[in-house]
């Protein structure tokens, strides 16, 4: 009986040895590795947009931890200003800003706008990340505050003596909801609430509600077509110093070279801050109120990633 058992045992081993050999082609070993790796976490979808801002508005992109970004945004005058103003080149407004990534999910920034000498500061927090085969969108919160240090438009209903410092303030809250549909196409919806501390309250509300729609379509690896539109639900027809204001529409290109990203565009907004874009866009594409503008971003790594700390 024992002999019989030993024989069986040996034959079983032999059968398995053969089995082991035939099954162990590298393809199967790769499959085995694949099976083991798949149980890991889902891949995050990255690079929904090229930069932290598309044209005037913010994107869901954050600066990485320890990265400093200097941004110069420039808007020339309207193209319809004619030859004597060199088609708008002679008049220009600029925003100079510095942004910094505190963590991979939280970034802050400050900036100065030439238009109305407006200083602004913001914080952007990534709340949800789009995942492959999981979460369909990336969601961030953007909040900013700004102060007009230059001439502010004071409604006629308010005496100059009553004009307080707090009347110069504006607050913006945005939810940035974006999805990268393919490596070349991304779309973002931006529900926005802008709060102006001072308005002619007999005619207007302090709060402006708007929805931003922005998109990016890559034309090549380094060039992308971009577009951005803010639709306002709150009527603001005659807010800005008695001037009619319009929804902001911008179209442009992202072009990158090495350490720079150039964003070239046409827009009807002369200002760059959220306040200026939503409440001070006094030109319209229909009447040639379009200006050429560009953003230049240059990033610096202040804190090295942990893999590079020696």
């Amino acid at each position: 009986m024992l002999k019989y058992l030993v024989a069986l045992f040996l034959s079983a081993s032999a059968v398995n040895a053969v089995h082991a050999q035939s099954a162990d082609s590298t393809g199967d070993l790769m499959e085995e590795l694949e099976g083991d790796t798949k149980s890991g976490k889902k891949q995050e979808v990255e690079y929904t947009f090229k930069a932290t801002r598309l044209i005037n508005g913010s994107t869901v992109e954050n600066l990485a931890h320890g990265v400093l970004d200097t941004r110069i945004s420039h808007r020339f005058g309207n193209l319809n200003q004619g030859a004597e103003n060199f088609f708008g080149i002679d008049n220009a407004y600029t925003r100079i800003g510095i942004d910094y990534g505190i963590t991979n999910r939280i970034m802050v920034g400050i900036g100065h706008n030439v238009l109305s000498k407006e200083n602004d500061g913001f914080v952007k927090v990534k709340l949800l990340k789009q995942l492959e085969g999981g979460m369909p969108v990336t969601v961030s919160y953007f909040g900013s505050a700004s102060v007009l240090t230059g001439d502010a438009i004071v409604p006629s209903s308010i005496d100059d003596d009553d004009f307080k410092y707090s009347d110069r303030l504006t607050f913006t809250h945005q939810l940035l909801i974006a999805r990268k549909f393919s490596p070349s196409f991304s779309l973002q919806l931006t529900p926005t609430m802008l709060h102006l501390n001072l308005v002619d309250s007999s005619k207007y509300s302090n709060n402006i509600f708007a929805l931003g729609v922005s998109g990016r379509m890559k034309l090549s690896k380094r060039v992308a077509l971009t577009g951005e539109y803010f639709y306002r639900f709150t009527g603001m027809d005659n807010y800005y110093g008695g001037q009619k204001t319009y929804n902001s529409l911008s179209l442009g290109f992202d072009i990158e070279t090495g350490g720079h990203v150039f964003q070239l565009h046409f827009t009807n907004s002369m200002g760059i801050s959220e306040r200026a874009v939503l409440a001070q866009t006094t030109d319209t594409w229909e009447k040639g109120g379009v200006r050429y503008g560009f953003n230049i971003s240059r990033v610096f790594t202040i804190l090295k990633p942990k893999e590079f700390k020696k």
Binding site: M30, A64, T301
Partner: peptide
Amino acid sequence: VFQVPVKSFKMEKEL
């Protein structure tokens, strides 16, 4: 056999 997830390469400069 080896499998290298390309997105997991970390570089000193984020850009």
